[in-house]
Computed example of a mutant assay.
Amino acid sequence: MTTTGFEPARFKATQRANWNAMSGGWLSWQDKFERGATPVSEHLIALAGLRPGHRVLDVGTGVGEPALTAARVVGPTGHVTAIDLAEDMVAIATERAARLDDTAAPVDVRQGDVETLDLPAGSYDAVLSRWGLMFAVDHIAAFRAVAAVLRPGGTLAASVWGEPAEAPMVSRGFRVLAQRLDLPKPPPGEPNPYSMADREQTELELRAAGFTDVEVTDFTAPFWLADADEYVEFYRKCSPPALLGMIEQRYGSADDPGTWTAIAESVADLRATDGTIRLPSRTRVIRARR
């Protein structure tokens, strides 16, 4: 059987379509996801040293974080630009930004690709990204684009996932789907949630892009769910439609009980004494200066 190689343009088109399709699910799940994600946003903002008046860029903002949190920190004298590849994510983030009060900075949300940022050079004090940069096709190109829009001395503060075993929030359910659907391994070079998990490689790529004072450390996102059913809900609402279609094709229905029971059981060992499911997930945290 001939194995096709990685096609960057097709990958980006698929990513864009998937995130558009998942945007509503992510919005409906936002409050539950932020239980573990908000501490990551706060940590990135602290690492970036944000203060009133700063200009900030958020890359891969999704439905609006950490852009909206940053807007409250830099205040009305600051400014936040947020980009995302998916137009439907942009629409949701724009609507949410419009509801900020006048104590927050204005937030300009736009569709964009981190590797080809169409923004003025040297115009931002900080660039933030929460679980977005690892999907860049060309890591060094993405880091160079980020460096170009930072002012001299400006800071990149970003989170990317660690190894799958370290991040049960995202990995446990996918492992079940991969097994039940016999998913093939992605072609070499294709980005994935863990493509920046290697600290040394990521540091080398940052330095190759012109960053200095590079630090790649760990931070634990304290995700928790009320019960295993919430984990099933997460995968049902926030998975690409193609995966749900594959469940239907393989098992006759996207509601296949065997699949969803297996996903619930995949986190059973993480149940705490109070009945909640604790999913502390290690994330790599990047801090680097232009």
Results as ranks from 00 to 15, higher is better:
Trp260Arg: 09
Leu206Ser: 00
Leu225Pro: 03
Pro76Cys: 09
Leu100Ser: 10
Val40Ile: 15
Phe135Asn: 06
Asp125Gln: 08
Trp131Arg: 15
Phe6Cys: 12
Gly64Asn: 02
Ala254His: 08
Ala48His: 09
Gly154Ser: 02
Lys32Pro: 14
Arg35Asp: 01
Pro193Glu: 12
Arg236Lys: 13
Trp26Arg: 06
Pro191Thr: 14
Ala228Glu: 14
Trp260Pro: 05
Glu87Ile: 13
Trp131Glu: 15
Val90Tyr: 03
Val160Pro: 00
Leu244His: 01
Gly210Met: 12
Val59Thr: 10
Gln15Tyr: 05
Pro193Arg: 12
Leu177Thr: 01
Glu95Gln: 12
Pro188Val: 13
Ala46Ile: 11
Arg199Gly: 05
Arg10Asn: 05
Trp260Ile: 10
Ala121Glu: 08
Glu65His: 03
Gly75Phe: 04
Leu225His: 04
Asp218Ala: 13
Pro39Tyr: 02
Leu119Ile: 02
Arg35Ile: 03
Ser281Tyr: 00
Phe11Met: 00
Asp118Lys: 05
Thr116Glu: 06
Leu150Arg: 05
Pro191Leu: 12
Gly122Ala: 05
Ala126Asn: 08
Pro187Arg: 12
Leu225Asn: 03
Leu44Val: 15
Leu225Ser: 04
Thr283His: 08
Ala158Ser: 11
Glu248Gln: 07
Phe211Tyr: 07
Phe219Met: 15
Ile263Leu: 04
Asp58Ala: 13
Trp224Asn: 04
Gly132Thr: 09
Leu117Val: 06
Phe223Asn: 00
Arg130Tyr: 11
Glu205Ser: 07
Pro8Arg: 06
Glu115His: 04
Phe135Glu: 04
Arg151Gln: 10
Asp198Ile: 06
Val114Tyr: 06
Arg55Thr: 13
Pro222Ile: 01
Leu119Trp: 02
Gly78Ala: 11
Asp101His: 08
Arg271Met: 01
Met169Phe: 08
Arg151Lys: 11
Val63Asp: 08
Arg282Trp: 11
His79Gln: 13
Ile45Asp: 14
Pro222Tyr: 01
Arg55His: 13
Ala165Cys: 05
Ser129Asp: 14
Leu206Glu: 00
Ala157Pro: 06
Gly112His: 15
Pro186Val: 12
Ala142His: 01
Ser123Met: 04
Gly245Arg: 03
Val232Ile: 08
Asp274Ser: 10
Arg16Gly: 00
Leu100Trp: 08
Ala46Asn: 15
Asp125Val: 05
Asp198Ser: 06
Arg144Asn: 07
Thr103Ser: 07
Pro240Asp: 05
Val59Met: 11
Ala197Pro: 03
Ala9Leu: 07
Gly154Pro: 01
Ala178Arg: 06
Thr38Lys: 12
Ser281His: 00
Arg180Ala: 09
Val56Trp: 10
Arg175Ala: 12
Arg10His: 08
Ala21Gln: 04
Val127Gln: 10
Thr220Ile: 11
Arg55Cys: 10
His79Asn: 12
Phe11Glu: 00
Gly49Phe: 11
Gly64Ala: 02
Ala91Arg: 11
Asp102Ser: 06
Asp101Gln: 08
Leu204Ile: 12
Thr103Trp: 05
Phe211Gly: 04
Pro164Asn: 01
Ser281Trp: 00
Gly210Gln: 13
Gln249Asp: 10
Ile263Thr: 02
Pro39Arg: 04
Tyr231Leu: 05
Arg271Leu: 01
Arg282Gly: 09
Glu248Lys: 09
Thr116Gly: 04
Gly173Asp: 02
Ile45Met: 14
Ala13Phe: 04
Val146Gly: 11
Asn20Ser: 02
Arg51Met: 15
Arg130Glu: 13
His54Tyr: 13
Ala126His: 08
Arg144Phe: 07
